[in-house]
């Protein structure tokens, strides 16, 4: 068996435990899959694999137990999947018969969002697809996730770029009956940003995280939804060195800002990645260059509105397995 493992991996195939056997990953941006595509996935698994699929942590399908010699044939079968899930949303892929053009930049995951969920403050699938259009195909190891509210069901805090929806609540005092459902609930499940003063509600904008709970609880529509914004948390990760939750980077950012930052991230990586390594995960690049340089690069030509708040440093919460990773002679 003679294969170029690097090319194979970039093509979406795995170098697996079993000799001569590989697995195929099928990207599903935002975890949104028209079921008409399932029969093709089923066919590949039954004809070439062992009749199973693994549902990956990144909302993809991994089809295991495929002999390497079937790669070319299967790649040529993938065009309906790639056409529907990538090309249709605007991803540029020249030759659909050759399978996936890259795998380093991982599938963009998203919670189900406001297609279904009452908590979600925006359409996560739509944003995931718009991000996919900007970042794919690309080789750098980058993980991006989108979640509809601060409950963060999709764990954006474990991602390089985590996007959390925010809604600016609008209060119409004359519609408020002073039931305090919003005030009590904000203290109970969110940040305690609301207080009851003179029988009406005051919102501490510096505490509000835009979860929309006040709107959900208000019986009279005194609270309604204003603009949709995004909180971006960055450089969360698992791994063998120091697992950490992503740290806050921007709050109350517009959609265009989110998309531009995703695009700029790749220019930053291209400039600062350590090319002596087989690959370098973007979080470790930021560790080397420092936050300020990262910030300058990803915010290049980005119009930050006065409403948007920008972190002055990255306040990571996490731990290091071995202190010698931090302290060196």
């Amino acid at each position: 068996m003679n294969i170029n493992t690097k090319k194979v991996m970039k093509n979406g195939w795995r170098i697996a435990k079993d000799r001569n056997i590989t697995c195929l990953r099928i990207r599903v941006p935002g975890g949104y899959l028209p079921v008409k595509l399932l029969p093709l996935i089923q066919e590949i698994a039954q004809r070439f694999g062992n009749g199973t699929v693994h549902l990956t942590t990144r909302q993809s399908f991994e089809i295991p137990a495929i002999p390497f010699e079937n790669m070319t044939e299967i790649n040529s079968m993938l065009s309906p999947l790639i056409e529907e899930l990538e090309v249709k949303i605007g991803v540029k892929i020249d030759d659909l018969s050759k399978g996936y053009p890259s795998a380093g930049t991982r599938n963009v995951v998203a919670c189900i969002g406001n297609k279904v969920c009452s908590n979600a403050v925006f359409n996560t699938t739509a944003l995931a697809k718009d991000i996919e259009k900007i970042i794919y195909p690309n080789n750098p190891h980058v993980k991006i996730a989108v979640t509809g509210c601060p409950n963060d069901c999709v764990k954006v805090h474990m991602h390089d770029i985590g996007i959390i929806g925010q809604v600016e609540p609008i209060y119409e005092a004359s519609r408020c009956i002073g039931c305090q459902a919003c005030v009590k609930n904000c203290h109970k499940v969110s940040t305690g940003a609301l207080s009851f003063v003179n029988n009406k509600v005051k919102r501490d904008a510096s505490r509000c995280i835009g979860c929309g709970e006040c709107v959900l609880k208000c019986p009279t529509a005194a609270w309604t939804r204003g603009g949709q914004y995004y909180r971006i948390v960055i450089m969360g990760r698992t791994g063998k060195k120091n697992p950490r939750l992503a740290a806050g980077f921007l709050e109350w950012a517009e959609r265009e800002v989110v998309l531009k930052i995703c695009a700029n991230l790749y220019n930053y990586i291209d400039q600062y990645i350590d090319r002596s390594l087989p690959k370098e995960h973007v979080g470790y690049i930021v560790d080397r260059t420092g936050f300020n340089l990262f910030k300058a690069e990803v915010l290049r030509d980005v119009n930050i509105s006065p409403k948007t708040k920008l972190a002055s440093y990255l306040d990571f919460a996490g731990y290091t397995y071995d202190k010698n990773v931090v302290y060196k002679n």
Binding site: N114, V121, N123, T224, R225
Partner: peptide, 10 residues
């Protein structure tokens, strides 16, 4: 956009 849930009307 004034519905209780996001992107819904009232």
């Amino acid at each position: 956009g004034k519905g209780k849930f996001s992107d819904t009307d009232l």
